[in-house]
Amino acid sequence: MGFFDALFGRTKIPEGKTDQLFALSTALLDIQTRLSSTFAGKAAIILRTVDNSSYDALERDVQQILTLGGKDMPVTAEHIDDNQGYRWIIFTGKDPEDVINALHLTADMLKEAGYGDSLLAAMFAFDPPWYLIYTYRRAAFYPFVPKLSHTRDSAREFRIAQTLKPYMPIEKDPERWYALWDPPF
Rank of each mutant, 00 (worst) to 15 (best):
W177C: 05
P174E: 13
A57D: 07
R156H: 08
P74T: 02
N52W: 00
R176M: 14
F4D: 01
D127E: 15
F158E: 14
D19I: 04
P174Y: 04
R10G: 04
F124L: 05
P174S: 10
D108L: 15
S149K: 15
M109Q: 14
G114A: 10
F185Q: 06
S36Q: 15
R10C: 04
P74V: 09
L110V: 03
Q64R: 13
E157I: 07
D182Y: 06
A179Y: 09
E78K: 14
A121M: 04
A102W: 01
S53V: 05
T26V: 04
T18P: 08
Y55V: 04
Q64G: 00
E112R: 13
P14A: 06
D51R: 14
L68V: 14
A155V: 14
Q20E: 09
N101S: 06
F141N: 11
P128Y: 07
M109A: 14
R48E: 05
M73Q: 14
D5L: 01
G114R: 06
L103T: 10
D127H: 02
D56R: 15
T38P: 01
E175R: 12
L110Y: 07
E78M: 00
I31V: 12
P74Q: 08
A102M: 08
D56H: 12
A161C: 00
D81W: 10
L47I: 04
F144A: 12
D19S: 10
D182E: 06
E171S: 08
P143S: 05
L164Q: 02
N52L: 03
Y142I: 08
I31G: 04
F39D: 04
R138T: 15
L119M: 00
A40I: 03
S37T: 07
T151Y: 10
T49Y: 01
A77R: 06
G69A: 02
T92E: 11
P128K: 07
L47C: 05
D81I: 09
K111L: 10
L28A: 06
L28Y: 00
M168E: 11
A139P: 06
A140T: 15
V62R: 08
T135Q: 14
E59M: 12
T38R: 10
R159T: 14
I170K: 08
Y115R: 07
S154K: 13
A140Y: 03
Q32N: 07
L105A: 11
L180W: 12
D5H: 14
D51Y: 05
W181Q: 09
T49A: 11
F22S: 07
D153H: 12
H79L: 00
E15P: 00
I13L: 08
P169V: 04
L110Q: 02
Y167C: 00
E15W: 12
L119W: 05
R10D: 02
D5P: 01
R87L: 13
S36C: 11
L132I: 06
E78T: 14
I45L: 15
G41E: 09
E78C: 00
E175F: 14
V99F: 01
D127Q: 15
K17F: 09
P143K: 10
K17M: 05
A43Q: 09
A122W: 02
A107H: 06
S149V: 12
